[in-house]
Computed example of a mutant assay.
Amino acid sequence: MHTQASLTADLQALGLRPGDLVMVHASLKAIGPVDGGARAVVDALRAAVGPEGTLMGYASWDRSPYEETLNGARLGDEERRAWPPFDPAASGTYRGFGLLNQFLLDTPGARRSAHPDASMVAVGRLAAALTEPHRLGEALGKGSPLERFVESGGKVLLLGAPLDTVTVLHYAEAIADIPGKRRVTYEMPMLGPDGEVVWQRAEDFDSNGILDRFAIEGEPDAVETIANAYVALGRHREGLVGSARCHLIEARDIVAFGVAYLEALD
């Protein structure tokens, strides 16, 4: 069984340093059994980056009505009235992006951004600066926590997670100068100034397929395609953390690569 101390040592051997800003994508199953469970994994990450470091995760929202309101789809009136509004302090995280994010959110001092579907959680010195503001219509592109993460010199850690989880590449999609970008609309229930529920409409880039060629069911999207091409260059670090094969990637470098990749497409 792995321990917090052994995981911290593994993370340091992989390349995490005190003061680092790290966006974590984790598979707890891949890490293997840990004494203390997911909380010990979070504590190991925090120990590796130290008190001056910051951890960030993609929390999203377990009740996000993104699919139910996508591109003009509409919930029935009764469903809309019953749907809970997004509350950064209390709403759950989307389990599809990993259980570890809920443990990050439950960590004392954690901050969560205000965009329901693209909500980010951060713990550490830069937590407030990363998560505020986060407006509808600025999910993963300019003005988002991802932009501030990249500009702050962040690192992406795939802790046993697959290459199609490199969320920061959605930022590359947003800023790449390419024609034909797909856009979507959706609605989110937000808390109004007097505590009432207000459904707000948003328009943003299509994170499920920035171009038609990357929106074919069963085929790799742009994130997976670019991440695989990047890793083939060997500009990242790899190693074991617990039982998990891990990747440590400089966010600025993979974003620059992603932008160039997209802009070079025919």
Rank of each mutant, 00 (worst) to 15 (best):
L157A: 14
F97L: 11
A161S: 02
G153Q: 12
R112H: 05
A13M: 12
G50M: 10
H236A: 08
R80N: 03
E151W: 14
E151Q: 12
T8E: 01
N71M: 01
A256C: 00
V168L: 04
A176Q: 14
R17I: 02
T131R: 11
E173F: 08
A202W: 08
V255S: 13
L211N: 06
L136H: 05
L104Q: 02
I210C: 06
Y261K: 15
G153M: 09
F257M: 05
R252L: 01
M1Y: 08
K142T: 03
D253M: 09
T107V: 06
Q200T: 02
L7N: 09
G141D: 00
E78M: 06
V255P: 02
L146I: 13
L169M: 05
G242C: 05
H25W: 07
E217H: 13
L45N: 01
S6P: 03
D177A: 10
E250C: 04
E147K: 03
A38C: 09
H170K: 09
Q102D: 08
A44H: 05
R95A: 13
D35W: 12
P189E: 03
L240R: 11
S113I: 08
M23S: 12
D253N: 09
L163I: 01
A256P: 03
R148T: 05
E219Q: 15
A59E: 01
A73Y: 08
V223Y: 08
D266G: 07
L163Q: 03
R213P: 00
D266R: 13
A40K: 00
N71Q: 13
P33K: 15
D10S: 14
R252S: 01
L70H: 09
E187Y: 10
G37I: 01
V231K: 00
A174L: 09
L21E: 00
A114S: 15
F214N: 06
A82G: 05
V123R: 13
D221S: 04
P220Y: 01
V259L: 11
C246E: 04
A161T: 07
K155T: 04
Y94H: 14
A229K: 09
A26Y: 08
L265H: 13
E224N: 14
D35E: 03
R81D: 11
T8V: 12
V241M: 07
G143R: 05
A9E: 15
A172V: 00
S113K: 10
A48F: 03
I210M: 02
D20P: 06
L55V: 08
A232F: 03
P65H: 15
D77G: 08
A222E: 12
E147H: 06
E224L: 15
A227N: 09
A128L: 14
V49Y: 04
Y230F: 04
E68T: 08
T185Y: 11
Y66T: 02
A44S: 12
